[in-house]
Each structure stands twice: as C-alpha cells, then as structure tokens.
Amino acid sequence: MSVLAYLIPLSIVLGIVGLAAFLWCLKNGQYEDLDGAAERVLFDEDGPAGP
C-alpha cells in the first residue's frame, strides 16, 4: 500500500497540471476562434507571429 503514498499525490498533481493548462488555454484565447484554427492549419507558410 505504500505505493499509494506517492501515486495518489502524483495523480492529483497531474490533474492539477491538466486543469491549469486548460485554464491557461481559456485565458489565452485558444478557444475564441475554433473555425479559424481549423483553417489556419492549412496555411503553407508561417503567418504573422502570435503575441
């Protein structure tokens, strides 16, 4: 059972990392233009640099 002592904290930390990543994406505006993102992947050259 001692394996739980670090596996559980690890799983929670990983979960928090995932949550933080999602919240960051949200704040960063990654979800604001879903249609545009689908089109941008087809651009050949690199577009103007992001912020």
């Binding site: 604001e32 233009d33 992001g50």
Partner: peptide, 14 residues
C-alpha cells in the same frame, strides 16, 4: 500584431 477571427468575423489589431 494583427489577428483575424473567423468565428467572430473581427480582427484585433495592436
């Protein structure tokens, strides 16, 4: 910087 948005049909310019 300029970023156009297809969903919102707008462009943000800085």
């Amino acid at each position: 910087h300029a970023r156009a948005n297809l969903t919102g049909r707008n462009v943000t310019v800085r």
